[in-house]
Design a protein around this nucleic acid. Structure first.
Lengths: 180, 180
DNA sequence: ACGTTAACACAAAGAATTTGCGTTAGTGGT
DNA sequence: ACCACTAACGCAAATTCTTTGTGTTAACGT
């Protein structure tokens, strides 16, 4: 179910959201993904379950929302001095993250709910900052969409459907083809 | 949850499975994905809900199992006379199918449960028959995994995270690069 | 044919989800 | 600053889903 982008972002709604997000992260760390329920989060956050059901719809949507919110303020991708280096270190880190147990759980929740578009937006944003940095260095840059098609998509597909994250060698080959 | 590959595939288990699969397909067609529940399927199939919970675990796993079972006996990919033609017509059909509303629902259920490996197996099987046919014609053939990385993964990624299925022109370009 | 046990039925207990209605507190207008 | 409006929440009852314990059936091996 889609997250309701609150039409009234004022005091109380924001407080509830903060409280719920915080409770979710705490329980996620304490008990793990499979041991938490929506009423449990509600009681920890000091709100009634019906509030969460009306606002988020179900557990998957709430967890995806919380995970994606945690993703935003991550530091900018490291600057290695070259586009190729930036992309390689960033993608390695990215694949490692979503290949971890909580990472895969987040992916599943994101797919189950309907915030895959937010995932893509965040992803494209990260790539964009890398690409703009490269452009400011005078390097020739492909489009972010091209990188997604040639590198990110194969990696994510393997993590979701295949035998875990792609090897470093393979990512290198994909990257060469994408940049060359 | 993973599907329990019944250690006792004899009469009764098989009958129950048939009944459940049939009931699921019927309800899926009558009411749609979002209106069916596990107890509902159980009552239609003439079994108790606890049987379904013990055997399939949850609704996503059951639906994914039913969908994947429907996928197997599909006719072999059409023979267009060339590897490139075979792959293009097959992939177009494949993308159309998983981009449909029930197709996307199936994908979500497959990701939510743990039968993504079965998805990949079926996929590789289809590609393999196309590749073997091409090999028997004397054509040079890439590996099935390479095709997955270069063509299938980008398409599936777009359907899951992006703006729907890739255009025919784009698939053509991907295919050219994968084959050439 | 017989013993073994996986798979199922039944039912009760427990948890999650939905829903109706009253209340609180942002929001916009005066 | 005050007031009217209503989105968002609290509460609680009703419903539905899920789990679990126990007994029974029937498939499988010998």
């Amino acid at each position: 179910m889609a997250i309701k982008t609150s039409l009234r972002p004022g005091g109380r709604s924001a407080r509830v959201q903060d409280s719920v997000h915080q409770a979710t992260r705490a329980l996620l760390a304490e008990l793990g993904r499979d041991a938490i329920s929506l009423p449990l989060i509600a009681s920890r956050a000091g709100v009634t379950p019906s509030t969460l059901y009306r606002r988020w719809g179900d557990l998957s949507s709430l967890l995806a929302d919380v995970s994606l919110a945690r993703m935003h303020p991550d530091a900018d991708p490291v600057d290695t001095g070259s586009l190729r280096g930036d992309l390689l270190t960033w993608s390695e880190q990215y694949f490692d993250e979503i290949n971890s147990v909580p990472g895969r759980a987040m992916l599943r929740d994101a797919v189950a709910s309907d915030c895959t578009n937010r995932c893509l937006t965040i992803l494209l944003g990260q790539l964009q900052t890398i690409l703009e940095r490269a452009a400011s260095r005078g390097e020739a840059t492909p489009s972010a969409e091209h990188l997604v098609d040639r590198v990110i998509a194969p990696g994510v597909f393997r993590i979701l459907f295949g035998e875990g994250a792609p090897g470093e060698h393979e990512v290198n080959a994909w990257m060469d083809q994408a940049l060359g």
